[in-house]
Design a protein around this nucleic acid. Sequence first.
DNA 1: CTTGGTAAAGATAATAATTCTCCTTTAGGA
DNA 2: TCCTAAAGGAGAATTATTATCTTTACCAAG
Lengths: 139, 139
Amino acid sequence: MTTDRLRELLKEKGLKVTPQRIVIFEAVVNLKNHPAVENIIEYIKIKHPNISIGTVYKVLDSFVENGLLKKVKSENDIMRYDAVLHHHHHLYCATTDRIEDFEDPNLDKLINDYFRKKKIKSFNIKNITLQITGEFNNK
Amino acid sequence: MTTDRLRELLKEKGLKVTPQRIVIFEAVVNLKNHPAVENIIEYIKIKHPNISIGTVYKVLDSFVENGLLKKVKSENDIMRYDAVLHHHHHLYCATTDRIEDFEDPNLDKLINDYFRKKKIKSFNIKNITLQITGEFNNK
DNA sequence: CTTGGTAAAGATAATAATTCTCCTTTAGGA
DNA sequence: TCCTAAAGGAGAATTATTATCTTTACCAAG
Ligand SMILES: [Mn+2]
Ligand SMILES: [Mn+2]
Ligand SMILES: [Zn+2]
Ligand SMILES: [Zn+2]
């Protein structure tokens, strides 16, 4: 995601293009591992020491509302953010709090086909996401 | 789960059998829909008005640690508890915060077989849980 | 059955992530 | 350039949860 593209998206959504929004969005994109607000603040503090914490929360919230970011809930009660917008799953390591993306269209097809045949009574499925917990090997 | 069985389990785990533990466990079992601490407190307040909130948190924590309950994380940052211990999935309704159990051994087999063939590089899967979001129809 | 050691309960203060309030600043269209 | 709604900054408030400290009571040993 380029900064110019972000400017376009903000305009499309009727959101003003502010330096804070640019910086916060870039932080989420650059920080891998689905950063928490704390990580984002730490990251932007270096170059932009006077962005208020409340602003970070508000900006992230509006990004999520407008589909520029997605929320990722973690094991503990802190929210994390994801700039990868297309459907994907997550690999969770409970011991390190590391979260990595996992995509597999074949698996998605398998599951979707399964539920197309065997519907759940009295429930309309909107989305199915796998929470794959375990341990990362190396690295 | 009967109260006598709970007494046994507590003893097995080296936990003292206290009236608070009995009452709190029964609350989680009787309250369906994966109660939050708030629901549990509300429920037990009727018959046992002097159980401390801190005790509820501590008891639930020790139950989770000792495998008598499981945590279920919800959309917002409040923890919810589950007395159903065997492997199962959850149906989430984002609008009502309702959470229902969903079991499907066939689906589990399908997914397990899939990952037995196609392993994820550098990740050891411990558990796979589906987060099925959508809307409940009737009721 | 009584007792003593200790785990657990109760009360309340402290934390910490998040939200709110209120005021000031600024983006961006006219 | 001006106007104004939108957005940002500062700090208080909220709220789920945790920590601390004192008191109670479970239960094993005698
Ligand atoms: Mn919170
Ligand atoms: Mn919290
Ligand atoms: Zn992701
Ligand atoms: Zn459940």
